[in-house]
């Protein structure tokens, strides 16, 4: 059984009384444990909606979604909050660190919300901060560090609960290429240690770090690319070609 399973997911937004917008038409998707999957697509293709549904921030209009055999499509507000902090880790484009906390407490936040013991938090953060190279940043405020450093703190916050699934929403969108590369290498490194990652991105470069890339368009999955044994630059080429094909199909279909 796969870790994450989406079957016939449909999401319709109703604007006003009549105007219906179909964000997701029919999504079938499964992610295996230990996989690193990238989801690509244009703005408005339905990536964010899909991510919100997987993140239990939104619920599908129809279809089923399970993570580790837990049905996510009908969780109550309270249960979904608890589910998010226990099973999911989040990395955002704009980092979403809280400026009221220092970096250490930002990382502790999900554990505090889960009422973990302070000793337990300290045990968890030690290896993590070492692996992410953020030891010397912990006592500083988010406002005092650079974008790349902020994203490392955010990743630490996402990983400290040892989540089943790490959800990353454009994690390199606000970073320069040098920092982007460092963060993506870090993702690879985390993935190699067994962490399942689902990443939404615009960037072919970012997607090329994943093992599998899904292309979404008009609310369905259009295409799927496996990296297999290819090296990264080769895979990147494939992704770029695929994107070009996706766009040209758009032109011809019009």
């Amino acid at each position: 059984m796969s870790l994450l399973n989406l079957k016939h997911i449909k999401k319709v937004f109703t604007e006003g009384n009549t105007n219906q917008i179909v964000a997701l038409r029919d999504i079938d998707l499964s992610v295996e444990k230990g996989e690193f999957v990238a989801i690509m697509g244009e703005s408005g293709a339905g990536k964010s909606t899909l991510l919100n549904i997987i993140a239990t921030l939104d619920q599908p209009t129809s279809g089923t979604i399970t993570l580790n055999q837990t049905d996510l499509s009908h969780l109550s507000e309270k249960d979904s909050s608890q589910f998010r902090r226990e099973h999911l880790g989040f990395v955002f484009q704009s980092f979403n660190l809280l400026d009221t906390f220092n970096n250490r407490d930002n990382i502790f936040l999900p554990l505090v919300l889960s009422k973990a013991k302070h000793e337990f938090m300290i045990d968890r953060i030690k290896p993590l901060s070492k692996a992410l190279g953020i030891d010397n940043l912990l006592d500083r405020q988010p406002s005092e560090i650079s974008g790349g450093q902020k994203q490392r703190i955010a990743i630490a916050r996402a990983l400290i609960t040892q989540p089943d699934l790490l959800l990353a929403d454009e994690p390199t969108g606000a970073l320069d290429s040098g920092n982007s590369e460092k963060i993506l290498r870090l993702f690879n490194q985390i993935n190699h240690s067994g962490q399942t990652i689902l990443m939404v991105t615009h960037s072919a470069e970012a997607a090329s770090y994943a093992q599998r890339t899904l292309f979404i368009k008009d609310g369905i999955i259009y295409n799927e690319l496996y990296r297999g044994d290819q090296n990264r630059s080769h895979y990147l080429e494939q992704i770029i070609n695929s994107l070009a094909a996706l766009q040209s199909r758009e032109v011809t279909s019009q």
């Binding site: 909050s81 608890q82 902090r85 989040f90 999900p110 919300l113 916050r157």
Partner: peptide, 15 residues
């Protein structure tokens, strides 16, 4: 804004 972020990370309405 902070509470919005914390809700994403898993802070329920009750909490």
């Amino acid at each position: 804004a902070n509470y919005a972020i914390m809700r994403q990370l898993g802070l329920s309405q009750q909490e």
